[in-house]
Structures are given as structure tokens and as C-alpha cells.
């Protein structure tokens, strides 16, 4: 469980200037949940998640990871970082080693694990993200964009974190790469990991997540299940976000008199339409 209490944080932009990035954040993220954190660029998403493994210290407030207060003055942040994996935006930009294998091994080696254990974890992580053995011996710079991204994610997975946080995991990928990443997120969630990812795509959030947290101007704007959040399309529009397009179309069709339940993904829409057509034909 991740619990955030009254968190405040301001960026120092000069000797006297500062920009309030996070305002009084209170959140609880349950174990084994799959949460999407959505909001505009600059809404504070990335700043918030960097607090969750101690990369940024808050100005005030507390953060608990499984009842350990990581904001305490003497918290063991290295341990926290092995428990809470954080995948940055465009993680492939941080690849550095001569081979993909060595890059993935960087995390487990920092954990001071034995050579056998490191090896086992590298292969395990590579398999999880769908990299076969062959690319492991290549230079990371010979891989395709989607493969690089997955190799970088494997580097974090190899530390076997209990919770995995990903910042815009699908940013800059082609549709196929996006599919693969979200399939991976769902797979990791099924395997028992607590997953949190940020996104500014309502479609991705609706398709993948169980819970949605909406941020706006450094505050939590709304929090709830996918259905709860996207039922509030009007409010979302006011802060420059919106419900997924299929949800809007379904709402319009319903207004025209069609019997369509609220839907959030293309698949749900397909089912709803089939039902109407099937009903008429049958």
C-alpha cells in the first residue's frame, strides 16, 4: 500500500521564486491495484511519482510505503527504491551499457546480489517484457524503439519491485508498441504487482486501468473507478481533459434514443452495438 498524507512541494526557480507543484495531496493506492494517473503536462504527475521512491523530498507531508514512512529523516531510501520500481518517461534514453544484458543487470548488481541470482533475474525480466535471448547480447543501440523501451523496463523489473510506477509508458511509441506496453502492464498486474502509470490519454486509462486519479494544477481533481471518473465528462472538459471518444459517442447515441449503456473502450462499444443490431435482427 502507498499512502500519501498532506503532501506539499514547490520547485525553486530562483533565489526567491518558487512554483507550487503539489498542493496538499492525500492519496491511498491499494496493493495489487492498477491505477492510472491522468492530467495535463505540468499538472504535477511526474513530480508526484518521483516522491514515491524518495527521489524528491516533499516540503511537508508524509509518504508511507507498506507502513514505512519514507519521508522520515533516517529512512533507508535505497531499500525503498528496490521495493518501488520507477520507470521514467522515455526510459530508453537512460540505457548505457555495452550490451542489453549488462544494462538490465545494473539494478540487481546494485542490490549486491550474487552472480547466479543476477543472471536468473536478467533472463526472467527479459522474458517478462518479451525480449528473447538473442537481443540480450546486442548493444542496446541496435534495438528498435519498442525493444529499447522494453529493455529499459526490464532493467527496473529485474530488481523485482513489489510496486511498479511508470511515467508515460507509451509516450512516443507506434500503435503496436503501445499495445505491447499496455499488455505488459496488465500482465504484471495479474502477476500480483501494484501498478501505477501516468498518461494523458483517456483511452489508455480507460482501456487499461481499474482506478483513475485525475490531477490538475498540482491537486487531486478526482479519484475513482473508470466508470465513476468518465461519468463526469463535463467536469473533465472544464480542466481541458475529456472522457474517451467512444464514451462521448455512446452518450450522444443514447441521447438520440438508442439503448446503449455507458462504455469506455472500443470493445465495450462493439458489444453494445452488436446487441442493438442483433436485437433488431432477432
Amino acid at each position: 500500500m502507498i499512502r500519501i498524507e498532506n503532501l506539499n512541494y514547490a520547485y525553486k526557480t530562483g533565489a526567491k521564486n518558487q512554483k507550487q507543484a503539489l498542493v496538499n495531496i492525500n492519496l491511498e493506492i491499494a496493493d495489487n491495484s492498477l491505477t492510472a494517473l491522468i492530467g495535463h503536462t505540468g499538472s504535477g504527475k511526474s513530480t508526484l511519482i518521483r516522491h514515491l521512491n524518495g527521489l524528491i523530498k516533499p516540503d511537508s507531508g508524509k509518504i508511507f510505503i507498506d507502513d514505512t514512512e519514507i519521508t522520515a529523516p533516517k529512512a533507508d531510501l535505497r531499500r525503498v527504491r528496490f521495493d518501488v520500481g520507477l520507470v521514467f518517461q522515455y526510459p530508453e534514453q537512460q540505457l548505457f551499457a555495452e550490451t542489453v544484458y549488462k544494462d538490465i543487470a545494473f539494478g540487481p548488481e546494485n542490490m549486491k546480489l550474487g552472480a547466479d541470482e543476477v543472471k536468473r533475474r536478467v533472463y526472467e525480466a527479459a522474458e517478462m517484457v518479451g525480449l528473447s535471448e538473442k537481443p540480450l547480447e546486442k548493444s542496446p543501440f541496435e534495438l528498435s524503439g519498442g525493444q529499447k523501451r522494453r529493455a529499459a523496463i526490464a532493467g527496473v523489473l529485474a530488481m523485482k519491485p513489489k510496486k511498479l510506477i511508470m511515467d508515460e509508458p507509451a509516450a512516443g511509441l507506434d500503435p503496436r508498441g503501445r499495445e505491447e506496453i499496455f499488455a505488459l502492464i496488465k500482465r504484471l498486474h495479474k502477476s500480483g504487482m501494484t501498478m501505477l502509470f501516468t498518461s494523458h490519454s483517456m483511452e489508455d486509462a480507460a482501456k487499461t486501468a481499474e482506478r483513475v486519479i485525475v490531477m490538475d494544477k498540482g491537486k487531486i481533481f478526482a479519484e475513482g473507478s473508470v466508470a465513476e471518473i468518465f461519468a463526469r465528462g463535463g467536469e473533465l472538459r472544464k480542466i481541458g481533459l475529456d472522457a474517451p471518444q467512444v464514451t462521448i459517442i455512446a452518450d450522444k447515441l443514447r441521447a438520440l434514443g438508442y439503448d446503449i449503456p455507458p462504455v469506455y473502450t472500443v470493445e465495450q462499444m462493439l458489444l453494445a452495438i452488436r446487441k442493438i443490431i442483433g436485437g433488431k435482427n432477432g
Partner: peptide, 26 residues
């Protein structure tokens, strides 16, 4: 990048000169 590697357990600024220089590679 420093933050991202720190998130993977990288340790900067401890140990001798050689291990410190090595830690800068990532």
C-alpha cells in the same frame, strides 16, 4: 538521468575515486 539511475539503485559519491568514476558511466 541521475534520478533515473538512482531509482535503479545507483550510488553516486561514495567509495574511492575509481568506484566513484565508475559510477558516473551510467
Amino acid at each position: 538521468i541521475i534520478k533515473a539511475q538512482t531509482a535503479r539503485g545507483a550510488d553516486f559519491g561514495s567509495g574511492g575515486i575509481i568506484s566513484r568514476a565508475k559510477s558516473l558511466v551510467p
